[in-house]
């Protein structure tokens, strides 16, 4: 009965031995019939595995599976992301933007002077959309 570590034969066919280990194993194989037989069996098994991996057929269903999976889920995602933005919201947004833009005037130096002269001026003018917003 051979006392070689049986793992060595598998590492050998997988080319995972270093050069010294490989050399020693090859020397051993010259004299050991049982290891040579075992190695042959492993080689046949290895050949079968490789051949099985090469022979895998790609079924036609794979394509339809991909298309149906994408169709279903991308549709779902787009429905979720559908905007619910109406005309009313657009006006509101524009109104707020304008309001915020003119609000900073309050913090400018000379604001009061501007306001009072603005009021005097506005007495003589009809109220406008802008004057309503900034409260002149």
């Amino acid at each position: 009965m051979c006392r070689l570590n049986p793992e060595m034969l598998q590492l050998y066919i997988d080319s995972e031995l270093n050069s010294l280990e490989k050399f020693l194993l090859e020397e051993h194989l010259k004299d050991c019939t049982s290891c040579r037989k075992e190695l042959n069996r492993l080689k046949i098994l290895d050949w079968d595995f490789n051949s099985m991996a090469e022979k895998i057929d790609i079924p036609a269903q794979l394509l339809s599976l991909r298309i149906s999976t994408l169709d279903q889920h991308i549709k779902e995602a787009q429905e979720e992301a559908e905007p619910t933005f109406g005309l009313k919201e657009v006006y509101e947004l524009q109104y707020n933007t304008l309001k915020n833009t003119v609000n900073f005037i309050q913090y400018l130096p000379g604001n009061r002077l501007l306001t009072s002269s603005g009021r005097k001026l506005s007495k003589r003018l009809k109220p406008t959309f802008l004057s309503k917003i900034i409260g002149l």
């Binding site: 049986p6 793992e7 598998q10 997988d14 069996r41 492993l42 098994l45 290895d46």
Partner: peptide
């Protein structure tokens, strides 16, 4: 890998 192949072998 060793055990799987050994088992099959």
């Amino acid at each position: 890998i060793f055990r799987a192949r050994n088992l099959l072998k």
